[in-house]
Write a protein that binds this DNA or RNA. Structure first.
Lengths: 161, 161
DNA sequence: CCCCTATCGTTGCACCTGCAACGAATTATT
DNA sequence: AATAATTCGTTGCAGGTGCAACGATAGGGG
C-alpha cells in the first residue's frame, strides 16, 4: 500500500493541479485587464444578481471566508467597482452594490471568461460532461457525510435541504 | 450570454470549490497529526521515490514554484524530516533526502491519506472514474494548446514526448 | 585562462489568506 | 427595561505565496 503510493494518481493532488492551472489561466485574463483577484471576481459576479447584498450574503454565495469577502469588497470599493453603505434598517449590515463602472467591467470580462471556459470544454461530449458532474457531486456528497470536512455553504439547490 | 452567466456553473469555480474542499479535508489530517502543509506533504511524498533530489527535481515533480519548494524544504529540515546538503559534484545543487523520521512520518500519513481518498471515491464506477480522468486530461490538453496558459511540468508520461 | 552566459537555490518584498478576537448593533430572555 | 446572547463586519497577527532580483557556481567559446 504505502510503497505503491504515487502522488500523480492521488485525487486531491490531481484536483489541485487542474484547478490551479485553470484558475491561473482565467486570472491571467481578468487580472491583466482589470487587476482583479479571484476573490474580487467572485464577489463582483455575484453582485450582478444580488443587487444590494451584505458581506454575509456574499460569503454564502461565493464560498469565501468572511474576512476574505470583507477585504475583497474593500478593494473593489477602492477601485470604485462597488458602492458600500451601512444599512438603514440594521446598522450591523453593509449594503454592497455594483457601481456603473463595476457593471461595465463585468460586461467586458464575462464574455472573455465564458470564451475561455468554452475553449476548455470544447470537444467534450454531453455524456462526458454529465459523468464529470456526477463525480464532482459524488465527491461533495462524500464530504458532506464526513464530519471532519467543512460543510459546503451554497449548493444553489436549496440551502435548507 | 452575459446575463445568463452563473458562477455556480462556471467550470473554474466548480473546480476550485471541490479542489479546495478536498484539499482542506486532507490537510486537516496531516496538519493535525504532523503539522504539514500541502507543499511539505508533496515534497515529502516525492522524496520517497527520488532518494536524493535537488530543489529543481522536486519542483518538476510537485508542480510547485521553486521558491515554494525551497521554503518547504527549509521547514522540513527544521522539523528534521529531511536532510539537506550541498552536492559534491556541483556546488549549485542541493541534495535533499528523507530522514528516518521523515520516513516513519510518511508511513503514518500515507495510509490515512489513502483511506480518505478511498472514502471519496467509494461508490464510483470504473466508467465514471474513467470519464472523469478523460475530462481532466482533456482540460490539461486544452491548456497545453493555449499559449497563455502556464505549461504543465510533470505529466509522468515523459516530459519530452 | 578569461569572459560570457546559463543554471541553481535563496531571499526581499508586497500581497493575500485564515483564524481569532474585537466592538457595534440587534434580538431574546427575564 | 435591563441584561445576556447572538450576529455582523473589521482588523491584528502570523504565516504562506509569487515574482523578481541576487550571489554563487558551472559550462562554453575564444
Amino acid at each position: 500500500m504505502t510503497d505503491a503510493f504515487n502522488l500523480s494518481d492521488f485525487l486531491p493532488y490531481r484536483l489541485a493541479l487542474i484547478s490551479e492551472r485553470v484558475s491561473r489561466r482565467l486570472e491571467a485574463e481578468y487580472a491583466k485587464s482589470h487587476g482583479l483577484s479571484v476573490a474580487e471576481w467572485r464577489v463582483l459576479v455575484n453582485l450582478r444578481h444580488l443587487g444590494k447584498a451584505s458581506v454575509r450574503d456574499i460569503q454564502v454565495v461565493t464560498n469565501l471566508e468572511k474576512s476574505r469577502v470583507s477585504r475583497a469588497v474593500g478593494r473593489l470599493e477602492a477601485a470604485k467597482l462597488v458602492r458600500k453603505e451601512t444599512s438603514a434598517s440594521d446598522a450591523r449590515l453593509v449594503e454592497i452594490a455594483l457601481s456603473r463602472k463595476g457593471r461595465t467591467t463585468l460586461a467586458e470580462i464575462i464574455p472573455k471568461a465564458t470564451e475561455i471556459e468554452g475553449r476548455l470544454l470544447d470537444g467534450l461530449s454531453a455524456d462526458q460532461l454529465g459523468a464529470f458532474d456526477a463525480v464532482v457531486e459524488h465527491l461533495h456528497a462524500a464530504l458532506d457525510a464526513d464530519p471532519e470536512a467543512k460543510p459546503r455553504l451554497d449548493t444553489t439547490l436549496g440551502a435548507k435541504g
